[in-house]
Design a protein around this nucleic acid. Structure first.
Lengths: 303, 303
DNA sequence: CTGAAAGCGCTAACAA
DNA sequence: TTGTTAGCGCTTTCAG
């Protein structure tokens, strides 16, 4: 339980300066280090069990190697929605971890109140999950940070957003059901685009939004005889208890390991792919390269 | 998009030293600051939009104000298990956030490989979710960090663990079913205690563990006529499609907002309470006070 | 009650 | 190819 070993210790051990150690450890391009010292440094690192101090690194380099994931929760959201979001969080975390970033997680109902987290922690980027137009003005960072919106929708040209292609989903649903779907069931979406698309296609009484003040049972009861679309694996799972599963098509987010009945019809809009897109956009924004030609909205196609 | 404002800026603005600003901002007990300067500092902080730099703070104070949540994933775990964990993560994050800590999330199948995160980021503490005996030796931090194990089980006296009281659950199930339960269905548990308790009560062929290589349908099929226990809301939800819901009692983790049918019998082992316990233990460990008398295992009782 | 200053561990000019 | 050194923004001892 001794003192933590620092770069200084490595430097002393190998007989070089801390700068050299830093160069080696950061694979610095600018400075050329002899193969010999490089090896010796790595050896000492391993032998002494050196672990970098990210706080110091952040402070000196102005880059924290952390990204934030902020989940924007609605007061009336049910737990099934949270699960959907967490699935996305999980994929995002994997992606970012691959790229060497650690992930700070924050779920909140008041995104504005919490956004200074970004600046406090010098986050290199932020994913915001599930945000609608309304709250955009609450976000003000004062300085530049890449923000990627996932599963939310903002009517602006400034920010990048990753969304399921619901138009394509509806189209596909029609094909699968072999008829025009009569109703749709979704989680509450901070997603005005989806709202609009849905409202184009369905009269209000045929749209069910899963909220604390709504009853899924009642809605399904009333629409038993019709064919419809159910967005979300957990909603579909609930429906399977109350409905014959040839009455609807489920829109789910994971290709494998589904909890639905084997013969339930489904459309997959992959969370994994969504996270890959999001991570890719984030990478480009952080490196400030190759994002100029990127579209502001990236649609994740159903498979 | 100007330079970020630092304590120095505040100090200069108010006309005091950075030390004084630091004292004020940290509500330092040791140093007494006049009410007047205190006010002026706060005013300047607000006016200039000062946000502390946590990296610098961490570096200087050796405390990051971050805690880690490491989810220990099994290769064969299904997604329904992950969902269970997410709920816990969510509650833990809330609790820690209340206490002023930010949360680093990491899910991994190889906990040993990732544990240096703790030291890299100078985490003030770690929650490990879902860890079994086997992997304990993989965890070696070399220095002191509070670790609280949630929903896992280690057969040792060193670490603190928060677990559902499965004995009480089984007892309660018996009361509710008004008969001895014949089978049990659970997620795979990195939880040797539960395994043992279950094995005391059920013959192997009446225990179903939800893994990628098992079929819930088949098991339910075979046990249709018996009464049993289903641990986990999503498993119960799946069962509701295949079984009459008076055949089993579900063990779930949230008192409100359940997805189960209204008349499904249930035992609640609150995730929220679990998280509260866990957070409380963590707090004591971090403050190094009031944990000596704490039991190493804290059981969360069913309500 | 307040300030000066050392130092936390690391990066990145600039020198050598 | 490597070393010296000045910070990064904050905490904290010690002196006033």
């Amino acid at each position: 339980m001794g003192r933590k070993v620092t770069m200084k210790d490595i430097a002393k051990d190998v007989g070089v300066s801390v700068a050299t150690v830093s160069y080696v450890l950061n694979y610095s391009e600018k400075e050329k280090i002899s193969h010999d010292t490089r090896l010796k440094v790595f050896e000492a690192v391993k032998r002494l069990g050196y672990v970098p101090n990210m706080a110091a690194k952040s402070l000196a380099s102005k880059s924290s190697q952390m990204i934030g994931i902020i989940i924007n929760l609605g007061a009336k959201n049910k737990r099934s929605k949270l699960y959907q979001y967490y699935d996305t969080v999980n994929e995002l975390q994997r992606q970012m971890h691959k790229m060497g970033y650690d992930v700070l997680l924050l779920s909140t109902k008041e995104i504005g109140k919490e956004f200074d987290l970004v600046s406090k922690r010098s986050l290199d980027g932020v994913f915001v999950i599930g945000m609608g137009e309304r709250q955009l003005n609450e976000i003000a960072t004062g300085y530049y940070v890449p923000i990627v919106f996932v599963d939310g929708y903002l009517e602006d040209d400034l920010f990048f957003k990753i969304l399921p292609d619901y138009r394509a989903v509806l189209q596909k649903a029609k094909e699968i059901l072999q008829t025009e779907p009569q109703y749709i069931i979704t989680e509450e979406h901070a997603n005005d685009l989806l709202t609009r698309i849905i409202q184009e296609q369905f009269p209000p009484e045929n749209i069910f939004v899963n909220r604390k003040d709504n009853s899924l049972e009642d809605f399904l009861q009333a629409h038993q005889q019709e064919k419809g679309i159910i967005v979300g694996e957990l909603l579909a799972l609930q429906a399977e208890r109350l409905l014959n599963n040839d009455q609807f098509v489920a829109v789910i987010s994971a290709e494998t390991d589904s909890m639905l009945l084997p013969d339930t019809k489904r459309i997959v809009v992959s969370n994994k792919k969504k996270a890959e897109y999001a991570a890719d956009v984030m990478k480009r924004l952080m490196n400030l390269e190759g994002f100029e030609e990127l579209p502001k909205i990236i649609f994740v196609e159903p498979e």
